[in-house]
Design a binder for these strands. Structure first.
Lengths: 299, 299
DNA sequence: TCCATATGATGCCTATATGGAATGGTCTTT
DNA sequence: AAAGACCATTCCATATAGGCATCATATGGA
């Protein structure tokens, strides 16, 4: 019993005959005739009581007709629901963002997205880049915020690129400098984020390129706390420019980290080759709209 | 989109893989693989996000999975309902009976039928044979009570055969005779049933064979009234033996109509070649059980 | 009553689809 | 690193669906 045969039978009942049913279905009369016969053979019960050229539903026929209607309606419902999904009238977007910069950069997008696609539910998760990558691989989130360059196995779309700022205590010898290099900072203790943050990786790599391993004065996940203890003289912290200016206190001075390869290049990334839902594509489209290609601080 | 492909997809989701799904469906893995691919192509949306060897449902996949489950359940419901019908656990029997002898002969059957097949609804219609034949042809009733021999285009199963009794007023010259022939009654007025009763046909034919046309004193559809006016001397009436004895009054005498071809042979008839529902077959079976082959008054 | 017409069933043929075996690529596991 | 598991793809044999032609029968009108 396939939907094909049920469809034929239903149309025979609706149209009151095989020939008109064939017309409706853009088929020939023998095709319909055979489809109904097949259905009857398969179910082992006549569905139509052929009185000459007039057909009358048997008891079994009524059952099959009624059920077939709901089956076909269910199929229509299925394609309609998919159509809704395609048309972004429903669906959900599972998005993972890192705490650093997420609120600043993406908060405005949420409002636009919600108003443009009110039927799409946004499910937001906040984690460090490492955990987010795992979640991408597991499929727990479709998109995640992360820093470029994207790791192997991931594709990404840049959102915004800005330099890192070294957050120095006012008492620091380098405080007040417009720019500093990683070499300048070789001797000083660092204040880093907790493990699993992409920024640590960027900084660590830069140190390695300059031939030293940083001394870790402290780790924290809280930006304000990091700025605080930097101001207290524990060491030098690093923040993206915008965030650094937002969060700076009188106790610190900011110097741009003039070090190639340490740009804070926030992006939306996804597992390479994974199917992106229409909702996810819409989100990417929206970020492009707002932030351009994400090459610079043009937002 | 056919139920076959949906079934394959559902099993892939359930079993968590193509190969185990193939096992469950008694098919090979490529078959399943192609079925899912076909479904995806047809719907224009990936249903599974292939992460290496692990597959994860996409948003569209979840929709299709959920809908497919209800579709398949609906199909199961269909065959289950037909099975109920076949097993006489449900259904309806549309039965047409003539007023004459219907209650007497069939009343006991109703009780047995109801207790044996409590799920089957009996829809009873009472009409004369002529109308019942029309209803059989139209399919308004499946079975009808009628007299044998069955007309062209009908099949029948005998229920009970008994002679007709002439119902004579006590004052009638023939009153008290054990038997009378149609020839004996040639000169007397007849009291017949209303048009459309099979008994009239039988009597009319018998008169014709004896070379006379009966004089009609009165017609009625009410048995008691017919016996009444027969007793009042209006003419001679005719009733099947059992009914005649049940309804006789002191004002009448009964004589068996010893005339070949006038046996009152009640039967259940149906349109020749029509599909008989399981309920109808069960009813026929029951009448055979109770009345045998219906050749004589053996009930 | 008879004929023209319409209707559904059937047989045959072809295009298509389906299912299975073999194979290849990729990921996972030991 | 090798073995195994898993899915996709290709090829081929078979089965199936759909159309054409035809037949049988019922219907409706003259």
């Amino acid at each position: 019993m396939e939907l094909r045969t049920l469809r034929a039978f239903v149309e025979v009942v609706r149209q009151g005959g095989f020939s008109p049913a064939a017309k409706v279905l853009n088929a020939t009369q023998p095709t319909i005739s055979k489809a109904v016969k097949q259905l009857e053979d398969e179910l082992g019960v006549p569905l139509l009581d052929r009185i000459g050229h007039r057909s009358q539903l048997t008891a079994a026929g009524e059952i099959v007709y009624r059920r077939a209607l709901t089956l076909l309606a269910e199929r229509e419902g299925l394609v309609a629901e998919l159509e809704d999904l395609r048309g972004l009238r429903r669906g959900s977007l599972r998005l993972g963002l890192p705490p650093l910069g997420a609120s600043t950069l993406f908060a405005p997008l949420f409002a636009v997205f919600r108003s443009r696609y009110p039927g799409i539910e946004i499910r937001l998760t906040e984690h460090g880049s490492k955990r987010l990558e795992e979640m991408l691989i597991e499929g727990e989130v479709e998109l995640a915020g992360s820093l470029l360059p994207a790791k192997e196995g991931f594709d990404g779309q840049g959102v915004r690129c800005e330099p890192l700022m070294a957050v120095l205590p006012v008492s620091h010898p380098l405080a007040g400098r417009e720019q500093v290099t990683m070499a300048d900072l070789a001797g000083f203790p660092f204040i880093l984020f907790e493990g699993g943050f992409a920024l640590n990786q960027v900084l660590g790599d830069a140190c390695a390129r300059n031939g030293f391993a940083p001394q870790i004065a402290a780790r924290s996940g809280q930006i304000d706390f990091i700025v605080e203890i930097a101001g207290a003289g524990l060491g030098v912290a690093f923040l993206p420019k915008t965030i650094a200016y937002q969060r700076r206190t009188p106790a610190v001075r900011l110097s741009e980290l003039a070090e190639p390869g340490t740009e804070w290049h926030m992006a939306i990334v996804w597992r390479k080759g994974s199917y992106l839902s229409h909702a996810a594509r819409a989100w990417l489209e929206l970020t492009r709209e707002v932030y351009g290609d994400g090459d610079g601080p043009s937002g």
